[in-house]
Amino acid sequence: MTQITKAPTHEPHTVFIKPSTGLAALNMRDLWIYRELIFFMVWRDVKVKYKQTLLGMAWAVIQPVMTMLVFSFLFGKVAKLPTEGIPYPVFAFAALLPWGLFVTALNQGSRSLVAHNNMVTKIYFPRLILPMSSVFAGLVDFAIAFVILVILMIYYQVTPAWNLVWTLPLFLLLAVVTALGVALWLSAINVQYRDVNQALPFLTQFWLFATPVAYSASVISQKWQVVYSLNPMAGVVNGFRWALLGTGSGPDTALWVSIGISILIFVSGLFYFRSMEKTFADTI
């Protein structure tokens, strides 16, 4: 008979394991228990991202700035696309911010489960943490690039509307929800079908053209606006420009369509992810 010499540090909680049927319960309780892991994963992603690079965090600035310069030359100077009176560099950069966040989140998030397959096959934790932390890690780059936007706006003397204080966070939230929704779908599919890895670069490129980043949404004719806004990133980018630069008409039908689509992708992604979650360790 062994003797208990050391009592457990906390009262053990009981776990019931059973096959989940139908649409699995979202099990937010476990996500809450493991909330610190989200923080640590984000922290690790940020910390590791620019390790052993010469320029370090500067890359978070260089990437959007270089893209902005290329766009300014091609679309601003050569093609002379209309920008609703805003200097092209600011016009492009205001869109590149949410777009960069979306692309990072989409790419890292979609690959997150496969990239951490040793964690997935060895231990239990809510798998949602992986795509979530990939998306959140993108916010750090966003914050750094945001400083550049402020500098650009001061340089070109663009004054934002006062209501940006609450509209911008809302559009940022919309960007995060959209990115997370797509990442939930793609990361879960990627566990079984690595086709996602192959499709991502193409998808990213295609999506960029379908989003008013390099051009203004006003070039799309009125009757196609609602169809166009089926792309939730169109709503996000238009919203960012409206909040920061005052272009466009502000919240309209098209925006509500974008928001609706975004929520639809997110909620369905959440349920799809949860229903596939039980087989991740077996199929990865």
Partner: peptide, 16 residues
């Protein structure tokens, strides 16, 4: 038992 994978049938109760 360590919840890495889900059973197809049956239940487990784990305390701790």
């Amino acid at each position: 038992l360590s919840r890495v994978t889900e059973p197809t049938t049956g239940t487990v109760t784990v305390r701790g």
